[in-house]
Computed example of a mutant assay.
Amino acid sequence: MSFRSTPPGDGDNAYAIAFYAGQGAVATNIGAGGSLDVQVVVRRGDYNANGTFNLSATGADYQVLFAANGADFSSTMFARTTVLPATFAGGGTDFTEAVHEIGILGLAAQGGSLTTSDFVFV
């Protein structure tokens, strides 16, 4: 299901990061614009010893998700925050769509933050 009003800007470096602070959380835009395409999804929680991830608002870790080849995820920030926030709550649909995953262990517990300037697509 796509909620685009304009053609996708895959790889254009004008994008939003959808941040989910835990299970059931509505996306927070840590990018530069309310309706931008989403190229990075960050979910907060805890990685288990077996590599699985549990969403948690008090988790110590970040799970960073990317679509194939730096492409946009299928829905915009506007869809995630305004049109159908419950559909995207917790970022579960993004996890299913993601092709690449990076685990950043301990950063959330240390109060670290991520912004669009932390990611460069080449």
Rank of each mutant, 00 (worst) to 15 (best):
A79K: 00
A68C: 07
L107D: 12
L107F: 09
Y62T: 04
E97H: 02
Q23D: 15
M77G: 00
V122C: 08
E97P: 02
R80Q: 15
T28M: 14
Y47C: 03
P8T: 14
V120L: 15
M1E: 11
F73K: 05
G59P: 08
R4E: 13
G11Q: 13
L36T: 06
T116V: 13
D37C: 07
A32P: 11
Y47T: 03
G112S: 13
G111S: 04
G34I: 09
V38S: 02
G92D: 05
T116F: 07
T58Q: 14
A21V: 02
Q110R: 10
F73H: 06
F88A: 00
Q39R: 08
R44A: 11
V64L: 01
I17E: 00
A109V: 05
S5L: 13
T115Y: 06
F3C: 10
G24Y: 06
G103Y: 03
A32Q: 10
N48A: 07
G22W: 13
V41L: 07
L55W: 02
S113M: 09
S56H: 10
G22N: 05
T81P: 08
D118S: 15
L107N: 12
G91K: 00
G112L: 14
G33M: 01
E101N: 11
Q39H: 13
L65E: 10
F121D: 05
V64G: 07
L36C: 04
G11I: 10
G70E: 08
A108N: 12
E97S: 09
A27H: 00
L114P: 04
S74G: 13
G31I: 04
N50P: 01
D118I: 00
M77I: 02
V83I: 11
G45K: 03
L36W: 13
D37T: 10
T96W: 02
I104L: 11
N13K: 05
P8Y: 14
M77F: 01
N54G: 11
L114T: 02
T58V: 01
G111P: 06
F78V: 02
A98E: 12
S117H: 13
T6M: 10
Q39I: 09
V38I: 14
D94K: 04
D10G: 00
G59R: 03
A25Y: 04
L105E: 09
A27Y: 04
R44F: 11
T96V: 14
M77P: 02
T82P: 01
L65P: 05
A25R: 03
A25E: 10
F73E: 07
G59F: 04
A86F: 12
L105R: 03
V42I: 15
G22V: 02
